[in-house]
Design a protein around this nucleic acid. Structure first.
Lengths: 159, 159
DNA sequence: ACAACCAGGTTGATGCATCAACTATTCCTA
DNA sequence: TAGGAATAGTTGATGCATCAACCTGGTTGT
């Protein structure tokens, strides 16, 4: 079962391509979002999840599950978003440990103006660069890698 | 030229797949590297670049170009690495503004033990999950996206 | 020679991400 | 029904990333 110590040319090329893709694309999209909406990718994710919830409110742990963040990250981030007036914390009647995170009017306005702009950037820098076949290929690639990661429970960030 | 406001099912699927892939794969590989070698991805990148330089030393701006980091990030990071003894700063004779970053013995030991372990993880979680055809497809996808990004000078992070 | 400009780097402030430790409540089971 | 385990969430410390401001030394034009 001796595995080669280094990557082949082709393997190396693929790995480097992926790293580069990720860095450049995410960097660009994140910077656009920040510049035009004043939101970070993390802000955006929180707001999207809340705005999709029927009442604009979610329990912290639900939000944590949706974003796949660890609870501490979530808590810190919510604190900063509360300071900026995008969301509010609310206590939970039925479970006194619990906390709700609630979209404020400001937060809803923010996500509603940010979303179409963001989609436009995703389209411009990602979708438009690829053929439909490539989009599908990427889905398969991603699913293959993620499936194998899922086999090992240690792959999930500690919650 | 009216562009659709939202992504189609297929487009959304591809975008979400990419985001997920990036997060899960990078997270896992970074955590493995950190746990087994005590190096962050950023450390690793700096050390690889230095160790590939003939004399284990590079001017700061060369390192910045190689990593695509902005100079301030590089400076901060080098400071932390100096504190840990992985690299050292050295002044430049021929240009008094300049600074060299030099691999220390500790740094070389670190990268030499980390590299094969890291490669093993890349193979395990990335290469082994994909067919050669998929590796090639990913290269093409990446090149297509990055090429379009390169067309707009604003896509490069500010130096 | 001198001013203007530019390139190479550093610094401080702030926001973000992760880890470990902690509190408080609820659940479960002997 | 008491006491321990599990769940929900917060906090503080540290490292990482980015922005703006700054310093210094080299370059260029007149």
């Amino acid at each position: 079962m001796a595995r080669p110590k280094w990557l082949s040319k082709r393997e190396q090329r693929a790995w480097r391509a992926f790293i580069l893709l990720e860095r450049r694309l995410n960097g660009r999209v994140a910077r656009d979002l920040q510049r035009e909406s004043g939101l970070s990718g993390a802000d955006y994710e929180v707001l999207v999840n809340l705005s999709e919830a029927p009442t604009g409110r979610l329990r912290a742990f639900e939000l944590g599950r949706a974003t796949q963040w660890e609870k501490s990250r979530l808590s810190h981030h919510i604190t900063r978003m509360v300071d900026r007036g995008l969301v509010a914390r609310e206590s939970c009647e039925s479970d006194n440990r619990g906390a709700f995170v609630v979209l404020t009017a400001t937060g809803r306005r923010a996500i509603e103006t940010a979303a179409p702009v963001h989609v436009e950037h995703v389209r411009r820098w990602f979708i438009d660069s690829l053929t439909p076949a490539q989009l599908d290929a990427l889905v398969e690639i991603s699913e293959a890698v993620v499936a194998k990661l899922d086999d090992d429970p240690e792959s999930c960030p500690p919650s």
